[in-house]
Nucleic acid binder design. Structure first.
Length: 480
RNA sequence: GCGGCAAUAGUUCAGUUGGUAGAACAUUAGCUUCCCAAGCUAAGGGUCAAGGGUUCGAAUCCCUUUUGCCGCUCCA
């Protein structure tokens, strides 16, 4: 194993051991690719969310938030293209173990027929395939493959498995509705909740283009392969913003958000060389430009955020399916139009993993006497740290805990604090390092005389004396 | 989904030719009053991933399943 892989294993172990991330339903052997956030993990995750939300909404006057439901009308997913593009009939060749889309296989064979001058046969085959696909008659579809002796390009055999439908959307049942629409999907992306509410938000919040709608929420994808810890999960959380603009201005807004979003990442103190842009060559059905912001995870550069120029695809499609006009009247140019959209979409769980990966260090320390020592430390940016301040009386006696408790009570209204009086002071410092607490304050005998305490910094391990009544303010400034 | 490797305490691991489970660290309760862990005393914690099989006897051998990591594949 390489150092990076070792490091990744160590991060996963650390996340478990210190209450950041647990596997879902672990006592029942776990559920594949589903994870729970523990006491410190949930704090960290919430802090990431808050920072994103504040950056997007509070700091941008023209961006407002919503919180849409996970369940949506089934037609939503027809309009978005997910029903057509997110489920494909697949088949495996048992000899080569290669997987194919059935429609691609048959289309390929039809092209061969055409090339041989058998155009009529070719057309008949495609017509038959379309009919069977529409009827979802997979048994007959497989027979069609066998009849024409369509074989695998790798093994050359016709030894096929049964055809299976891979639908990446999870479905569930809702009672008390008509028979046809009682199957509903768990949303595979949060974006559609924003698009269907476009007019509601624009009118009630009196928004003028250009403006954005932000949302944080869960989405669900039935991934065939889900791996790499919390990087690819079946249930995950997205932080999305759809920015509505005048058609024709998408190129400049794409550039704007490309830069603005990378700046957000860099504002957390993560080095720029850990990031890179990745331009999409193959574009999704809705996009006219797309790029990923990639981060160098322990397992390589991977997407953490996507910036997509979605054109007017979604609003136009919802207009067509719903029959409701999705247009905006632009006073400046005295014109009605369906707005274009630039989307920024970041995986919250991936951002969590990014922060963990960046923060985790197995540090070797050389002590004053020359001997070496090591500590596990999470160098979280202070504003994301689960616990901001640990309050530690040097001893359990002599009235020190009372002073510590007073400080604790004063500070805990402003930020998350942790109180501990057990074990040697050095050991307590190390425990706080392991959960990424940026500041520790120690109350000692001198505190009783001159009202000063020792503040100890996580990253440098330096200490200095500060007035007791300045602690709250000092920490507050650092975590703002 | 295919292939490879793996699963023993919270974590990292040991466990002999098959003979009823161990270490270190961590945790908890005390002692120690100490400004950077690994001093002292004690305690808790494991159906050895699950199920089945072989055997007098299985953590150990065999099968199936589950879960994880890696490589392919996939990622609208």
């Amino acid at each position: 194993m390489t150092t990076n892989e070792n490091n990744f294993q160590a991060i996963i172990s650390h996340a478990k051991e210190y209450g950041f991330v647990f596997q879902s339903s672990e006592i029942y052997d776990g559920l594949s690719a589903v994870y729970d956030y523990g006491p410190y993990g949930s704090e960290l995750k919430k802090n990431i969310k808050d920072y994103w939300w504040r950056s997007m909404t509070q700091f941008h006057e023209n961006i407002v938030g919503i919180d849409a439901a996970i369940f949506m009308h089934p037609t939503t997913w027809k309009a978005s293209g997910h029903v057509d593009n997110f489920s494909d009939p697949m088949i495996d060749n048992k000899d080569s173990n290669k997987r194919y889309r059935v429609d691609h296989l048959i289309e390929g064979y039809a092209e061969e027929l055409t090339a041989q001058g058998k155009e009529k046969e070719s057309e008949e085959l495609i017509t038959e395939m379309d009919r069977l696909l529409a009827a979802e008659d997979f048994t007959a579809l497989k027979k069609l493959l066998e009849q024409h002796k369509i074989s695998c390009a790798v093994s050359g055999t016709c030894n096929w498995t049964d055809i299976r439908q891979f639908n990446l959307m999870f479905s569930t049942q809702v009672g008390s509705v008509t028979e046809e629409s009682d199957t509903i999907y768990l949303r595979p992306e949060t974006a559609q909740g924003i698009f269907v509410n476009f007019l509601n938000v624009q009118k009630t919040a009196r928004m003028k283009i250009p403006f954005g709608i932000a949302q944080i929420g869960k989405a669900f994808r039935n991934e065939i392969v889900a791996r790499q810890f919390i990087f690819r999960m079946r249930e995950f959380e997205q932080m999305e913003m759809q920015f509505f603009i005048r058609p024709g201005t998408q190129a400049q807004w794409f550039e704007y958000w490309k830069k603005t979003r990378l700046d957000w990442h860099l504002s957390l103190g993560i080095p720029a060389d850990k990031y890179r842009y990745h331009n999409h060559v193959k574009l999704a059905h809705y996009a006219d430009a797309a790029l990923d912001i990639e981060y160098e995870f322990p397992f390589g550069f991977k997407e953490v955020e996507g910036i997509h120029s979605r054109t007017d695809f979604d609003l136009k499609s919802h207009q067509a399916y719903s029959g409701k006009k999705m247009q905006y009247f632009d006073n400046e140019i005295n014109q009605n139009y369906i707005p274009y959209v630039i989307e920024t979409s970041i995986g919250l769980d991936r951002m969590f993993l990014l922060i963990m990966s960046h923060a985790y260090e197995e540090e070797t320390i050389t002590k004053e006497d020359g001997s070496t020592d090591s500590r596990s430390v999470l160098h979280f940016p202070a504003l994301l740290a689960p616990v901001k301040l640990a309050v530690l009386p040097l001893t359990k006696k002599d009235g020190l805990p009372e002073i510590a408790r007073d400080l604790m009570n004063d500070c805990k209204t402003a930020f998350r604090c942790f109180y501990e009086e057990k074990d040697a002071i050095g050991k307590r410092y190390r425990r706080q390092d392991a959960i990424g607490t940026p500041f520790c304050v120690t109350i000692d005998h001198q505190t009783k005389e001159d009202q000063t305490v020792t503040i100890r910094y996580r990253d440098s391990m330096k200490q200095e004396r500060v007035p007791l009544d300045k602690v709250k303010q000092l920490v507050q400034q650092a975590v703002a």
